[in-house]
């Protein structure tokens, strides 16, 4: 409740604007730099046939596409379950279930993914490798989105919701046009976490034979070719950071004005 600030006044000081530009353009430039350095390094090596089998454009692109599509399916499933569940668990009539459900989600994240995926592969052999990978990573990534949806909705000022209801908005209307928009910043932070975590953990899909950039890393380990291992690791890291950067832009875009 400070004194009024005019919207026309220079809103962003020079320093803050510089930081902002650095955040928007700095990350992709740095990531491109890393990839370029990696390319130059690999190009300078004398690759044997085993290395060549992993380190060619066709193979790398196909693994990257696998990696991204697997991640995308997992994240979509996470969002489709965690957001509605988070909304339901913050309604007064379902609040009692919040504790047990959060505990379950916690267990999902606390269990080492590697253990989870291997366990699934052994127990649910009939499912097929992709299903096993997807279910394991899905369980692992639910928690940040679920928890942030709940926290985001709960931190909305009660008086704002009450005034919405007091003016004759239905429960659904108040949820859609007041509660959710005000919860969006916190929810997006959770979604961003889930994205990065998923892109990182999908590297483990290789161990059940579900592909992805983990294959490149695994090839490097099995064949003791450090160049291959390095390439796989750097690509996974670059991909995760790139997705994080994208999500950051989306966060900026969807943050409600005035908040």
């Amino acid at each position: 409740m400070s004194t009024a600030t005019r919207p026309s006044a220079p809103a962003v000081p020079e320093a803050a604007r510089a930081t902002r530009y650095l955040r928007i353009f700095g990350t992709p430039v740095a990531l491109l730099g890393v990839v370029a350095a990696l390319y130059l390094y690999v190009d300078a090596q004398d690759l044997d046939r085993i290395e060549q089998r992993s380190l060619n454009a066709e193979y790398l692109v196909s693994r990257a596409v696998q990696h991204l599509s697997l991640s995308a399916v997992v994240v979509v499933l996470i969002l489709a379950v965690a957001i509605p569940l988070g909304i339901v668990l913050t309604r007064p009539w379902a609040r009692k279930a919040a504790g047990p459900v959060l505990t379950l989600a916690n267990i999902g994240q606390a269990t080492p993914t590697f253990g989870l995926i291997v366990l699934f592969a052994v127990v649910f052999m009939t499912w097929g490798v992709h299903t096993i990978a997807i279910v394991a990573f899905w369980l692992y990534g639910i928690l940040p989105v679920l928890r942030n949806t709940m926290v985001g909705l709960e931190q909305v000022d009660r008086s704002v919701v009450e005034s919405a209801r007091g003016m004759g908005m239905s429960r659904a209307r108040a949820l859609i046009s007041v509660e959710l928009p005000l919860a969006v910043p916190v929810m997006l932070a959770g979604i961003r976490t889930a994205l990065v975590v998923t892109v990182g953990t999908v590297a483990l899909a290789t161990f059940v034979g579900a592909g992805g950039l983990g294959d490149v890393i695994n090839n490097g380990i099995i064949s003791s070719r450090d160049t291959v291992l390095l390439t796989g690791s750097v690509l996974v890291a670059v991909l995760a950071l790139f997705i994080d950067w994208l999500a950051g832009l989306v966060e900026d875009l969807f943050r409600p004005k005035g908040v």
Partner: peptide, 10 residues
């Protein structure tokens, strides 16, 4: 109401 209950995002 007290604290106005104004919608901050509108």
């Amino acid at each position: 109401i007290q604290q106005t209950g104004l919608f901050p995002h509108r």
